[in-house]
């Protein structure tokens, strides 16, 4: 039997009267790409907030890599090996591209209470950051201010920063949002090549990417998982087709 990397049980989140996450159960196996799809307002991003520790859940438990993380801080969840990316790009705009990634590297190298040595000349940080940039195809933009990147490049940097924390599991919140077709297929290919290396929970509206990448898909509607299965099963599911995928 494959090991379960992430196990979400009876997870609940209310916003006033609105139930954003409704007794949700999800299991993600180690090494799989598990896509979560659903119409707008289905609670996909809320789920990522809860998993990454930015929102406290009302009830339910989250187990990750053999330990319960339901009440762990964001930073500690990251150290445990679970890192998220953002739908709305969240980078250090006044840092260079290289330094953005270097911050993630620095985070995994123990505490940062080092007050004296110049971190800009730290070959370890810069070297590892550059490796990640090469993987993401951003190496030529290393010295550019992150704010000056094109939108698609910022999206790539967003993912690079998550990867640089050396995670076991990635929570990807619409990684392809706002990318051109070329960048989008580049990132799709990259994520495909990373299959098996990282476990991934993928939220994405680009259905081509979802069906190309995902091992399993959970369909979320009003905070509830209405279906879960392989891409073929989901494609064949009448209810899902009508509710979400359309009949084309």
């Amino acid at each position: 039997m494959t090991e379960i990397m992430l196990k979400v049980e009876n997870l609940v989140k209310h916003f006033g009267g609105l139930v954003a996450t409704d007794s949700l159960n999800i299991e993600v196996e180690q090494g799989e790409i598990h896509a979560v799809i659903g119409p707008n307002g289905a609670g996909k991003t809320t789920l990522i907030h809860q998993l990454s520790g930015m929102l406290e859940s009302d009830s339910g438990t989250i187990h990750f890599d053999g330990q319960e993380i339901s009440h762990m801080s964001s930073a500690n969840r990251c150290h445990a090996g679970m890192v998220r990316s953002y739908q709305i790009t969240s980078i250090f705009k006044d840092f260079s591209v290289l330094d953005n990634v270097a911050m993630s590297i620095q985070a995994r190298e123990g505490h940062s209470f080092r007050f004296w040595k110049n971190a800009n000349k730290d070959a370890v940080l810069a070297g590892k950051a550059r490796e990640i940039l090469v993987e993401m195809g951003l190496e030529e933009r290393a010295e550019v201010l992150a704010d000056n990147l094109a939108h698609g490049e910022q999206r790539q940097l967003e993912i690079a920063m998550a990867l640089a924390t050396d995670p076991k599991m990635l929570l990807l919140d619409e990684p392809m949002a706002g990318m051109g077709p070329e960048e989008s297929s580049r990132v799709t290919k990259y994520l495909e090549s990373m299959k098996g290396k990282y476990t991934m929970l993928l939220i994405e509206h680009d259905m081509d990417a979802v069906f190309a990448l995902a091992d399993r898909i959970t369909v979320l509607v009003y905070g509830q998982a209405v279906a879960c299965g392989t891409p073929e099963e989901i494609r064949g599911n009448e209810e899902v087709r009508h509710a979400y995928l359309g009949d084309d």
């Binding site: 930015m54 890192v83 995994r108």
Partner: peptide
Amino acid sequence: KMVNSRFGRVIRAAKSNDERMHTIGY
């Protein structure tokens, strides 16, 4: 010295984007 150290980078990055700092492990 301090603002260019690892410590300094952490406080500068926290000014830039505190939430992201938490999610990458600080």
